[in-house]
């Protein structure tokens, strides 16, 4: 099963995303901020895709994307930003850092799965 790494500082969001992704056949790894995500990637986790929030403590989404792109195994891993931010400036900043896609909260489960399935289909 493809692994999806989910990063969000809201425990409810993490559980909700995990529930939807697991229901669609994905394995899910989670972290509460960008630093936890980097620790997992540095520790050898090779997710098929990463879903990250932007506003998180310790290391925010943009910082996480920049650091993740320096890790050889995560250089080309699709990173989707899921955030309340809908502004063009933030979007450009995330894209420049290396984000592959963007979903604005509130998103529909089908929207989320459609993006994830395009990037990493479940066989």
């Amino acid at each position: 099963m493809p692994i999806i790494l989910v990063l969000d500082d809201s425990a409810t969001m993490v559980m909700s995303l995990s529930h939807i992704l697991k229901g669609a056949g994905y394995e899910v790894e989670t972290g509460m901020n960008g630093r936890e995500g980097i620790t997992k990637l540095s520790g050898g986790l090779k997710p098929a895709a990463i879903l990250t929030d932007l506003n998180m403590p310790e290391l925010d989404g943009i910082g996480f994307i920049k650091e993740a792109r320096k890790i050889a195994s995560a250089r080309f891993t699709p990173i989707i930003v899921l955030t309340t931010e809908s502004g063009g400036r933030k979007r450009d900043e995330a894209r420049a850092a290396g984000a592959s896609g963007w979903l604005t909260k509130p998103a529909e489960p089908n929207q989320l799965l459609s993006v994830v399935k395009q990037l990493c289909p479940v066989k």
């Binding site: 909700s16 939807i20 309340t84 509130p106 998103a107």
Partner: peptide, 10 residues
Amino acid sequence: AFVEAQRQDF
């Protein structure tokens, strides 16, 4: 659940 979780987060 997903929509409510996002509302709560916001």
